[in-house]
C-alpha cells in the first residue's frame, strides 16, 4: 500500500478509487478466492461508473431539479423505481413519518385480529 492516506489523489492514476480497498471488499465475500488484475481494475472502474450513474439518475428523476439539491429521498426513490438499482432497496429504505408507520402497525394488528 502506498501513501499515508488512501484518500489522497495520485496524479495520473487510472482509477480514482483505490484498487486495494476494492480488493479488500471483494475478498470479504466468502466464496471468492482469486481475482486477477484486470477483473479488479474493471470492478473498481465499474464502481466509479455506478456512483456517477446513481447520482445522475437520482438527481434527474428526483425532486432535486427544482431545489438544485440531491437528498436521501431521491436515492431511495431511484432504488425503488429503477430495476438495476433495485438491489439497493435494503440499504436505501424509503423514509416514512412515524405517524404513518404507527398507523400501518395499527392496521396490521387489526388485520391479524
Amino acid at each position: 500500500m502506498s501513501g499515508s492516506k488512501e484518500e489522497e489523489k495520485v496524479p495520473g492514476r487510472s482509477t480514482s478509487l483505490p484498487m486495494s480497498r476494492v480488493k479488500l471488499i471483494m475478498k470479504s465475500s466468502p466464496d471468492v478466492s482469486h481475482i486477477n488484475q484486470d477483473a479488479l481494475f474493471l470492478t473498481t472502474k465499474a464502481t466509479e461508473l455506478f456512483v456517477q450513474h446513481l447520482a445522475q439518475y437520482s438527481f434527474r428523476k428526483g425532486c432535486g431539479g427544482e431545489s438544485n439539491a440531491l437528498g436521501y429521498s431521491d436515492l431511495a426513490k431511484a432504488a425503488e423505481e429503477s430495476e438495476p438499482f433495485h438491489f439497493l432497496t435494503d440499504i436505501l429504505p424509503k423514509k416514512i413519518l412515524a405517524r404513518d408507520y404507527l398507523r400501518s402497525l395499527e392496521e396490521r394488528s387489526e388485520d391479524s385480529d
Binding site: 465499474a46 464502481t47 455506478f50 456512483v51 432535486g64 439539491a69 440531491l70 437528498g71 432504488a79 436505501l92
Partner: peptide, 21 residues
Amino acid sequence: GVNVSKEARRAISQAASVFVL
C-alpha cells in the same frame, strides 16, 4: 452548484460498497 446532502453522500458510498459485493 448542486447541493448533495451528507446523508445522500453516505448513502451513495454505502451503495457503492454493496455494488462491489
